[in-house]
Amino acid sequence: MSASHDPVDPAHHGHGHGSRRGYWIGTLLAIVLTVLPFWLVMGNVLRDPQVTAILIVAMALVQIVVHVVSFLHLDTRSEGGWTLLAFLFTVVVVFILIGGSVWIMFHLNTNMMPMSGTGAAMG
């Protein structure tokens, strides 16, 4: 997106070079951030599931940002910032949707537990 949207440089030369370097840095980071979580979980390196879980989720979030920036070429300039705005809006909705659902249903399950237990005992 960015390479083809630089109005100052229709031939793409300078910009293309810069985005190529960004692409390679992104590729290296993506490989590292993919290999590390698999290594942590498959090798049981930390022997602590909770710390491992926090680490792999953190790495996933970082890797998503890396992919969006270096592969989807999201920046503040393309389309006058509208792609960034749409992306940020989506991120907010995604967090509300996933976080909210899990949060609410977790509490619902916790509060329903004794009742369903009694029901099962009575049934």
Binding site: T34, P37, F38, I56, V57, M59, A60, Q63, I64, H67, V68, F71, L72
Partner: peptide, 12 residues
């Protein structure tokens, strides 16, 4: 590339 990003969420 978008599908690869979704896959990050899936495998994690």
């Amino acid at each position: 590339h978008f599908l690869d990003i979704i896959w990050i969420g899936v495998f994690t």
